[in-house]
Design a protein around this nucleic acid. Structure first.
Length: 584
DNA sequence: GCCGTTTTCGGCCCGACTGTTTTCAGTCG
């Protein structure tokens, strides 16, 4: 059992204790332990074997015992006992916005509701209003919440799906029979949320069965929903659906193109092939029987890779992220497609949390992980004082953190930790620290965490006022979609971007795993206005740094080049840009 | 359940919002 699985089980145990109405501090201990394990560097198996678990803050005698059992046997009596106490459907109800353990417990105990379907029926029938403290409005909100949950479905966020896909591909590539292999589908197109993972590989016919078996028996596979010679489908332990297709190597470019999509892009590709007298499918180009009258069908060119397919159709190579039939064909025809920013261009990032506020790793650990990713700087931007729930920093703490960062920088001259803050924009548009405190930082990320129920006009003014502060550098999670489950707060982003352009401020693409933010249209709008864009993971742990991939995807879909992204610059370039944001 | 002593018990993050109340509990970030 790995770190993630242990952390998830501890989290679930905490939730189950909440549902039982156990001592809230006990349940919190489990939630804390879950976070502690998540932030643990190194292998959990090693920690158990070396007996160093108890040294981790938040892990005491009882939880250390549970973790040891989980690692050694795959389960634990305490966990099994807790699971038995609550039907599975009850846990699902907690995923509905606005429902917490207290209300769910009430539904379960008073009305014997044990599934989302039953909850929905009860809300429709007005049976929830019979409970003390519940009324029509609550029922309405619950129905809305269920609908939102269902429409969201069992989709996964990009970073999680990408990680799962890489693990499988790495395992499959070890088989000598695998010639070429690639992630396909919406994941390759870098969609923010993906429904399932498509893997494609090429191999000789005689190797197919063996490779398929390697796939369906992989340790990450929970259940096999279909298996054949050329296609198998499984559900992974993370709940992600995953398909594997195996084709002949000469078919690989066509299959990769076809299964990458999008559907709209494929339709246009095929129609362009037809105009040349060819037919295009997932295996090959072929000559049309009835080619366009009066014209000789051109010879079908040899295709070795995807680039060759585009070349044959008179197009430059279209990166997967742009394949939406959204202007990419026109640009590819005339050689206007930009060279897009890549993950390798990223030299660091700015919006990360540490143990000073609600992160699980120390500043030093975060910096060390960033260095190992090949970055040359990392900006720490912990919460400001009003965000008490997240351990927002008092002014004294700010000074303490700055001192620590200065000391770390002195010791490691080859890596730079940048001093930032994620400062709340208060309801009246002022910032949560006075100017003389803001002046202490290298840069200031301003963002909204409270009072979401404003009119669009009021919210837009609030954000623009916050952003216009002399010390504000960058707008954090800009489109207000704080959670997948939550509707974005009302804001006119075009006006905010215009204001950022006028005052030389930066807009971030926030890539927190639970957040869907600046979408690619706004990204493109900002670029066209000359606004600088930063790709930030909003990482709360060393693993969270990986989520920068999410923002890179959005940047690519917004047609951003390396030069458009702030964090492709050197330390000096970045600091100079940040200094320039203070002129206004 | 964990932590850290003022060292084996007592404290553990808090302010705003919502829907229901008429003084507050539950949820969220």
């Amino acid at each position: 059992m790995n770190k993630k699985e242990i952390s998830d089980i501890l989290e679930e145990m905490g939730t189950l204790l909440d549902l039982q109405g156990a001592n809230p501090f006990k349940s919190r201990a489990f939630h804390n332990a879950s976070r502690a394990i998540e932030g643990l560097g190194g292998d959990i198996g090693d920690a158990v074997a070396e007996g160093t678990l108890r040294q981790v803050k938040g892990i005491g005698e009882s939880i250390a015992k549970i973790i040891t059992e989980l690692v050694n046997t795959g389960t634990s009596p305490e966990y099994e006992e807790l699971r038995k106490s609550v039907p599975e459907g009850v846990l699902q109800m907690l995923k509905i916005q606005g429902l917490g353990p207290k209300k769910v417990k009430l539904f379960y105990e008073k009305l014997r509701i044990v599934s989302l379907d039953e909850l929905e029926a009860a809300a429709r029938a007005g049976r929830l209003a019979s409970l003390e403290g519940f009324g029509a409005k609550t029922e309405e909100n619950i129905l809305k919440g269920i609908q939102a949950f269902r429409s969201r479905g069992d989709k996964s966020l990009y970073p999680a799906a990408e990680k799962a896909a890489e693990v499988l591909l790495t395992a499959l590539r070890k088989d000598k029979g695998v010639i070429r292999s690639e992630i396909a589908g919406s994941l390759r197109r870098h969609k923010e949320v993906v429904g399932d993972v498509d893997l494609l590989l090429s191999a000789k016919d005689r190797d197919r069965t063996r490779i398929m078996e390697l796939f369906t028996t992989h340790p990450d596979v929970q259940s096999v929903t279909g298996s054949g010679e050329t296609k198998s489908s499984v559900v992974l332990k993370q709940g992600i659906h995953c398909d594997l297709r195996i084709v002949k190597d000469e078919e690989f470019p066509f299959a990769l193109n076809y299964f990458t999509g999008s559907k709209e892009h494929n339709v246009e590709m095929r129609s362009r092939a037809r105009r040349r007298g060819w037919s295009l499918n997932e295996y090959a180009f072929s000559r049309l029987e009835d080619s366009p009258a009066g014209r000789a069908t051109p010879k079908i060119p040899a295709v070795k890779n995807e680039e060759d397919i585009y070349k044959a159709l008179g197009l430059s190579y279209v990166p997967p992220e742009l394949r939406e039939n959204n202007g990419e064909f026109e640009a590819a025809e005339t050689g206007q497609l930009p060279v897009l920013v890549t993950e390798k261009d990223i030299k660091g990032t700015f919006h990360c949390h540490s143990t000073y506020s609600d992160g699980v790793n120390t500043v030093a650990q975060m910096a060390d992980a960033a260095r190992k990713m090949g970055w040359i700087y990392l900006g720490i931007a912990d919460h400001s004082k009003v965000a008490a729930y997240a351990g927002g920093l008092s002014v004294d703490k700010v000074k303490e953190q700055i001192k620590e960062i200065d000391a770390l920088n002195e010791r490691n001259p080859d890596f730079r930790i940048l001093k930032g803050t994620e400062c709340d924009i208060l309801p009246d548009g002022t910032l949560d620290y006075p100017d003389k405190v803001l002046a202490l930082f290298d840069y200031v990320v301003v963002s909204i965490h409270s009072s979401f129920a404003m009119t669009e006009e009021a919210m837009t003014r609030r954000i623009i006022k916050g952003l216009k502060n002399k010390y504000a550098t960058m707008l954090g999670h800009p489109t207000g979609r704080l959670l997948l489950a939550r509707e974005p707060y009302p804001v006119n982003m075009e006006r905010v971007i215009d204001a950022a352009a006028d005052h030389g401020k930066v807009i971030e693409i926030n890539a927190h795993p639970m957040r869907l933010d600046l979408d690619w249209r706004l990204c493109r709008y900002a670029r066209n206005k000359g606004v600088h864009i930063a790709v930030n993971p909003d990482a709360h742990s060393i693993d969270g740094l990986h989520d920068v991939t999410y923002g890179v995807g959005i940047a690519r879909k917004g047609w951003l080049r390396k030069a458009d992204v702030v964090n492709t610059g050197s330390v000096d370039e970045v600091l100079a840009l940040f200094a320039s944001t203070r002129r206004s």
